[in-house]
């Protein structure tokens, strides 16, 4: 070996030689500093069972296949399912325009972007419709209480941000625009349409 080109391994960064990095703390030091250090060092102590075997004594299931829950209305389901699952949630059944969009979304598999994008579209129509409907009730949506925005005052919104280097400060300015913008834009369009309708009616 040419001695001029040999270098002590201690001078080399670790990945370029085979040795592992030096231990920073011994097991005894770690055990003394950290309660429970190494209690699950043996993977056999880590939760793993039951795996790859049917274990009703562990799960509590006392059926081969569960009883079927009654289906109070035609329940939408993924077309990847071979049948309606025996148990399912029954809150907020499909209804109205949002329901039609969502029902259409379930014609596509979970592998298709159309499925998810239509569901998100249904979500937005649902929340818009609920908001409009609430205006005709004794309990209309209240953007101040429902967004919890008052906690900006009560929970130190200013100092939580200003006294920190937190990275979300870089987009704090755009967040209200993205959240409230669609509502404001919808309101503006609604007012414009209403004005147009009034003008047409006056002709």
């Amino acid at each position: 070996m040419n001695e001029n080109t040999s270098t002590s391994t201690t001078e080399l960064d670790r990945p370029y030689v085979a040795d592992k990095p030096a231990v920073r703390e011994t097991d005894d030091e770690l055990r003394a500093r950290i309660p429970g250090w190494g209690a699950d060092l043996d993977p056999a102590d880590r939760p793993a069972v039951p795996r790859e075997r049917y274990a009703p004594e562990v799960t509590g299931a006392h059926w081969e296949f569960p009883d079927r829950q009654p289906e109070p209305y035609p329940r939408e389901r993924s077309i990847e399912h071979g049948m309606l699952t025996p148990v399912f949630g029954t809150v907020a059944p499909l209804h109205g325009v949002s329901g039609a969009i969502r029902r259409y979304a379930y014609r596509y598999s979970e592998g298709r972007a159309a499925h998810w994008l239509l569901l998100i579209a249904g979500d937005r129509v649902d929340s818009f419709g609920a908001h409009v409907k609430s205006l005709a009730t004794l309990h209309p949506d209240n953007p101040v209480t429902e967004t919890g925005v008052l906690s900006e005052v009560r929970r130190h919104g200013w100092s939580s941000r200003v006294r920190s280097r937190r990275v979300d400060r870089s987009h704090t300015w755009i967040d209200p625009i993205l959240v409230a913008g669609p509502w404001v834009a919808t309101g503006v369009v609604a007012v414009m349409l209403a004005r147009k309708a009034v003008a047409l009616a006056r002709r």
């Binding site: 799960t59 296949f65 993924s78 309606l84």
Partner: peptide, 19 residues
């Protein structure tokens, strides 16, 4: 899936998605 310990992947409780 439950029989193999994959409780979070149960196939009998979620008609809306298999994933």
């Amino acid at each position: 899936f439950c029989a193999r310990g994959l409780y979070s992947n149960c196939h009998n409780v979620n008609p809306n998605a298999t994933a």
